[in-house]
Design a protein around this nucleic acid. Structure first.
Lengths: 201, 201
DNA sequence: CCTACCGATCGGTAGG
DNA sequence: CCTACCGATCGGTAGG
């Protein structure tokens, strides 16, 4: 399927419907109605309903990976686990707020993918979460973080950031940059040793 | 509908299926098949599919409210916002781990309720979240908490706790009590002033 | 992008 | 709790 304008419109409309009613709760005809065409006409632009979900989910997975990679290999080398965690959190939040709809589909609907696609995403999510866990493990080992369970802390922090799609309103009081900073602060404070950070943090 | 054994079995089976495939992705016949009866036979025990979802969601909402109420009006009066927040977080986590399946349905599927029921739950969730926000506002005002945005911090913390249903495995390394304590620690540290707590916390 | 259509399945009812 | 059945809708195809 070529990357036409129509195809992008389909994915946009599908994203908002999948968010509202879920993948299973959205029919192909719902998508078509929102575009003022017939249900069957959609199949000129997609091979299946799942194909659209997969396109949305895969692109978001790419964006999360790229943002994390960039945050951890920035020009100014960040040394301490505290600032590395802050950078990773801020990067994740930024991807979420830049495309709330698609991020919401990625986070909430990836389980509806076909078995093969679902397994692929499950693996990529695990690898992504390991980035958080590795930083927390390092911080705990060096003593700049409190003696938290790294697996628990990583899961709690990552699901907290994913939860943003449930409550954040882009037209509200808090801007995307404010939110990214607030989340980074909350996350770092949550794991930081109470007797104060080391100088490199 | 009377509260028969069969009815409870239906809600148990429905909970796990709603969790796995979502409400819209679960058919009445899926539920029946898991109970080895015919689809139509279910209607001797329920008036509609939504009726079952509503029963699950309403009961969990009651449990969360009751646990929060109990945590904040405990025998030993808890004074500081730090320990009140810790108690509220631990109470929430305990309800989640005590019934992961139903909690997961409550958290992930309440949007699939009929309009009236959905509005009811939306209101109750708002009121519940206000408990978190009020404590954080108090802690910020008295200076025992850092200068966080109370609305953001409350939303982040509550969605982090709800995210437990996405990753927690009861048969794993971390027990329910450990998890409740770990979450309370993370949440309190996330908002606590870095220059150390006041004596009452 | 349309009309016309496919078999399968949906939630739910009737009547026992 | 069953059989038999309802109209509606599902994702998708054929053929233009």
């Amino acid at each position: 399927m070529p990357e036409t304008t129509r195809r992008r419109e389909i994915e946009d409309v599908a994203s908002s419907l999948f968010r509202e009613r879920g993948y299973a709760g959205t029919s192909v005809r719902d998508i078509a109605r929102a575009l003022d065409i017939q249900g069957a006409s959609l199949y000129a632009h997609m091979t299946s309903k799942e194909d659209v979900l997969w396109a949305i989910v895969e692109r978001m997975a790419d964006r999360f990976d790229a943002a994390a990679e960039a945050a951890l290999t920035d020009d100014a080398p960040v040394v301490g686990p505290g600032s590395r965690l802050a950078a990773l959190v801020a990067a994740h939040v930024t991807v979420v707020t830049e495309d709330l709809q698609r991020a919401g589909v990625f986070i909430g609907e990836w389980r509806s993918l076909d078995d093969g696609h679902r397994a692929t995403i499950a693996g990529r999510r695990d690898a992504y979460e390991r980035r958080f866990r590795a930083i927390i493990e390092e911080g705990v080992a060096t003593g700049s973080f409190a003696a938290v369970d790294p697996a628990v802390a990583a899961a709690v922090i990552l699901t907290a950031l994913n939860g943003i799609v449930e409550w954040y309103r882009p037209d509200g009081r808090v801007g995307p940059a404010d939110l990214a900073e607030a989340c980074a602060d909350l996350a770092v404070r949550a794991v930081l040793a109470v007797d104060g950070p080391s100088p490199s943090d």
